[in-house]
Amino acid sequence: MTNNQSSFWAGVRAELPLLIGVFPFGMIYGALAMNSGLTHAQAQAMSSIVFAGSAQFVTSQLVHEGAPGLVIVLTIAVVNLRHLLYSASMAPYLKDLSLRWKTVLAYLLTDEAYAPGILNYEKEGIQPSSHWFLLGAGFTLWLTWQMSTALGIFLEAAIPPTWPLDFALPLTFIAMIVPALKTRPMVAAWLSAGIVAILAYSLPFKLGLILAAGTGILVGTALETRR
């Protein structure tokens, strides 16, 4: 095996444990998207066009509620803003790659590909075949996401409509964010955004969501800066 190949497979192996969480996510997304009124093709296409778990959940929810298109697009942008951080943190390691490699690796740069990828770079530094590791991790995640989406779409019909499947959405978000609330500014950002979201819920066009997110970001940043 060449160095490139072994680096690719090392990336695949690093991704495998994460798939235990990713596969059910993808299935729940597929089922929820169908529940929200998307067609089979739209639900599946979103997994490769947008390819970002939480944004896909939120989009399904907003489509279900009949939110205007512009609000949905803006919300996707806000929900995915964190990818700017990943982009910033990966940039120094990818700076000498061709535009084609940068494009492919940026497309694959999800939460679950970023984590093993950046750990590998921090441990090994930039090696001639390092980018193959990120490709292996990212591609494995991509393939799993497409397959689990398809299975969720397929199984949706088998799930009784009285089941409160929509509750899986807030539960997914709770599972993702609660373990990360380790500092006071994080908790304050979370609580303040939540309270504003309830108070401003009746505002039109889901503006309450943007207002709440803005409040939480300001509160967190202000508290951190003050310390």
């Binding site: 964190r82 951080l85 979370w190 939540g194 309830i198 967190g220």
Partner: peptide, 27 residues
Amino acid sequence: VPGTMRRALHYVPPAVLAALIFPELFL
């Protein structure tokens, strides 16, 4: 990337996700 923006981006996930979670539980 300016330091302030980097810090602010750090609070995007808790803020956005709380805004999605709380109304589902309390309303």
